[in-house]
């Protein structure tokens, strides 16, 4: 998806990092098992986080597995579980929509690639949507509403972010306990908001160059593809409030076997990603991260 929701690796315990990798690799294997090889390319950090956040099974079992990207090294992968299956289904649903969105804008080669991938994953999407009908409906409704806002060049940052935030919040509807469901819904709403705003801030210069829609273009007055210091402060203070709401919801979610990793992502990872995006180093640092960690 976007990849902003990731831990600060240096602050993880080694055991935590191994478990995190176990979930990531487990999700990738689950995707292959349920939706075929191609769907593996949709694996991402965001749904790894969601699989951990909504894991309500006890201590998870792992087993050593090989995969095409590490043919000579066996990795301890999380075994299939309810939350992992749900995460895999949702990865395919949202991944497909993101590809479908990519066919609508961007440059021609990228559009062509998205179109091909979209067609190749059409069947997988159909199966995933049948397994998660509520989430698929929420994805369709909110992403269509978002496209409409983009076409209208919606000047409200909150209104645009709201659609993506609602989409993420719909994931919480599967949580059984009411208090936990409310907390998860609030957490995911603000996570969606933060992801959307980060993505907008990250793409701002590019969107100005190509004259694409970006809510920050209309909410603020960017100069040379950048927000003024004053505007950036207003924007980041608003994000801080969202992050506070996210944290306040997180501590109400109750116990979780992945608490150490989740806390790292929430308390350190999100602020670090935000810092990198606003410093303009996100794309480079993300690339370095990918190379070094090579999960």
């Amino acid at each position: 998806m976007y990849g902003y929701v990731r831990p600060v690796k240096g602050e993880l315990k080694i055991s935590e990092f191994e478990r995190f990798r176990g979930v990531y690799c487990g999700l990738c294997h689950e995707l292959a098992r349920r939706y075929g090889f191609l769907s593996r390319f949709l694996v991402n950090y965001d749904f790894t986080f969601l699989a951990m956040l909504l894991a309500d099974e006890g201590p998870a079992k792992t087993c050593p597995r090989r995969c095409p990207s590490h043919p000579f090294r066996r990795t301890e992968c999380l075994e299939s579980s309810q939350s992992l299956q749900t995460a895999a289904d949702m990865t395919v649903v949202l991944g497909w929509w993101k590809l479908a969105d990519g066919t609508a804008d961007g440059r021609l080669p990228a559009r062509l690639g998205c179109g091909l991938a979209c067609r190749a994953l059409k069947r997988a999407y159909g199966r995933a949507a049948a397994r998660q009908p509520d989430f698929a409906a929420a994805a369709e409704e909110n992403l269509r509403a978002l496209q409409k806002l983009e076409k209208e060049k919606c000047p409200s940052l909150d209104a645009a972010a709201d659609k993506f935030a609602r989409l993420l919040r719909s994931i919480a509807s599967g949580v059984e306990d009411l208090a936990r469901r409310r907390a998860a819904g609030e957490l995911l709403y603000h996570l969606g908001r933060i992801i959307y705003i980060l993505d907008a801030a990250d793409d701002l210069a590019e969107d100005i160059k190509t004259d694409g829609y970006n809510p920050l273009r209309y909410r603020f007055q960017p100069v040379d593809g950048k927000l003024s210091d004053e505007d950036e402060k207003v924007l980041r203070t608003g994000m801080q409030h969202s992050h506070n709401a996210l944290v306040s919801a997180y501590v109400l979610m109750g116990e979780n076997v992945y608490a150490g990793i989740l806390s790292n992502i929430i308390y350190l990872g999100l602020p670090a990603a935000t810092q990198a995006v606003f410093a303009g180093t996100w794309n480079t640092s993300a690339k370095i991260h990918r190379k070094r960690s090579s999960i």
């Binding site: 409030h241 992050h243 506070n244 709401a245 810092q275």
Partner: peptide, 21 residues
């Protein structure tokens, strides 16, 4: 309250990073 960034729980021990940078 809006301008100052509000408040929320942060665990002790260096886990207190801020979004405002």
């Amino acid at each position: 309250y809006m301008n100052q960034g509000g408040q929320a729980y942060r665990p002790t021990g260096g886990m207190g990073a801020s979004m405002m940078g």
